[in-house]
């Protein structure tokens, strides 16, 4: 234990708790994830590339990442608006609305999926008003964007909200005293302070949407080349006992998650520098 400088720490249990933490992390997370990487390494490079760049797979990336991008953008705009309204304005029922924002975290994805599919189907509560205008949501790529917006909704609100709460009144007062209009204050003082957290929220919402499965499959229609998301393709391959194909595509997804995790970590470090 000489390796770890303990600085005369009188608290006990360091070795035991850290040991258990690393053991449990390895058994549950690291070893299983490494299985995926090792299984992919069993493929030749040519096999791997031809599997992960097959036309149907490429189409699924386009649908998944494209829809996730749109959904994250929608969530960034409305997320900032919702956070602003919750932090700055007072209206009856504000606390309930605030609590309700986390509903997509708490509501199981399958429930969200069947509900959105029902509401937005041509004779559903919302779908019946869209149908006459030629807008089809359920069973089209638009449905995928909708489901992804639903599950990503809390991320931007919850990353931007605490930063907004900590903006000091003095900064705005200073801007006003120096002759800034309200618009200038918002644009040049408040928005730059919020930007790192907005980008973090965008990235979190995007990352969640890319991996999402349960809420999407019910509303997507799941047509190959058109509205088939990558996670569904992995399951389809698995059901056809195409383990190699499933593994290779899953490895690409894992790589995408790792890159996004890296970006999110960098963004968070950046926003922390701003708040200090």
């Amino acid at each position: 234990m000489k390796l770890f400088k303990r600085h005369n720490n009188v608290l006990p249990g360091f070795g035991l708790t850290l040991g258990f933490t690393i053991f449990y992390l390895s058994v549950i997370v690291l070893i299983p994830l490494s299985a995926l990487v090792f299984r992919t390494a069993g493929l030749t490079w040519g096999e791997f590339i031809s599997t992960v760049t097959a036309p149907r797979v490429l189409a699924s990336y386009k649908v998944t990442f494209g829809a996730a991008m749109i959904a994250a953008a929608v969530n960034s705009i409305f997320g900032v608006l919702v956070a602003w309204v919750l932090v700055r304005y007072r209206f009856p029922g504000r606390r309930i609305v605030d609590a309700l924002v986390d509903l997509p975290f708490a509501l199981p994805t399958a429930v969200a999926g069947i509900t959105l599919a029902t509401i937005y189907s041509p004779n559903g509560w919302v779908g019946r008003f869209l149908e006459p205008h030629g807008i089809k949501v359920a069973f089209t790529p638009l449905g995928i964007v909708l489901a992804m917006t639903f599950i990503g909704l809390p991320f931007v609100v919850r990353t931007v909200q605490p930063v907004m709460e900590e903006i000091e009144v003095e900064l705005e007062e200073a801007a006003v005293c120096l002759g800034a209009s309200r618009r200038q204050t918002l644009q040049r003082v408040i928005f730059p302070m919020l930007l790192p957290s907005i980008l973090t929220g965008f990235a979190l919402s995007f990352a969640r949407a890319v991996g999402e499965y349960g809420s999407i499959i019910f509303i997507a229609g799941n047509m190959p080349m058109v509205s088939e998301i990558t996670p569904l393709l992995i399951i389809t391959k698995l059901e056809q006992f195409d383990y190699q194909g499933a593994t290779a595509i899953a490895c690409v997804m894992l790589l995408a998650s790792f890159s996004m995790l890296l970006v999110i970590n960098l963004l968070q470090r950046w926003s922390r520098r701003f708040s200090d």
């Binding site: 890319v210 991996g211 499965y213 593994t247 899953a250 997804m253 894992l254 998650s257 790792f258 996004m260």
Partner: peptide
């Protein structure tokens, strides 16, 4: 950050 489908697959 791992897709639920990948979590099951492993």
């Amino acid at each position: 950050s791992v897709s639920p489908v990948v979590s099951g697959l492993i």
